[in-house]
Amino acid sequence: MAPRVGVVLFPGSNCEHDVVEAVRLLGGDAEILWHGDGSVQGVDAVVVPGGFAHGDYLRPGAIARFSPVMEAVVSFARSGGPVVGICNGFQVLTEAGLLPGALQKNRGLKFLCTTVELRVDSTESVLTSSATKGAILRVPINHFEGNYTCSPETLAQLRANDQVVLRYVDNPNGSVDDIAGITNEGRNVVGLMPHPERAISPLLGSDDGLPLLSSLVASAAAARV
C-alpha cells in the first residue's frame, strides 16, 4: 500500500491541493486533514501547507497552533512522525514549538513572489534525504513574513547540529545565515519558506521540488514499516 500523507487544511490555507497533487505524482496517497479534528487519522506523514491560516491574525500561525488538529500533529511529531511545514506551515510549526526561531517581515518590507535558488546543506532530514548535498534547486517563494530569525544561541545550535537543511544562494528576505529551511534535533520535522509543491514539473518552470517531496514520501513509507 502507498504511504499516506495527510495535508492539514485550516481556514485560509491555499496550497493544500498543490501538495496533494505532488504527493500523488510521487506515488503516495494524500488526504486532507481538517483543522477541527483532533486526529491525524493514522497517516504516515503530515504536511502543514502554505496560505494564510486564520487570516494570519495576531501573527502568522499564532491562532492556527491552537487548532485541535495541531495537538495531534504535535504528538505525532514528538513520537517521531515525519512533519513538514511549508511557508505558512513553517510559521505554524515555529509557533507550535516544533521548530525553534520565528519568521518576521521580510527585509525591505516587500511581499516576495519569485523563483529563488536553494542550496541543499544537509541531507539528514525527512525533506532532504533523497536530495544531493550541495545541489542547487530552483523553487518559488511567495511570502511577506519569511525572514527567519532566532537567538544567537539557537543559531549556534542549529549550525553545530547541522540543522540548517536549505539555504538561499542569494538571500531574498534577510533571513539570518541565509536560512530557507531547518529541521529539528530529531530530524523528523522540517520547516521551509519556499514551495517545493509548486516546482514539480517543467511546465511549472521547475521540477526541482521533486527530490524534496520524494524524500518526504520515502520518509512516510519508512515510517509505515
Partner: peptide, 14 residues
Amino acid sequence: SLREGVADPQGATI
C-alpha cells in the same frame, strides 16, 4: 513591541 535588537523594517521605512 519587537524586542531590542530585532530588526523592525516597518519602523525603518517610516
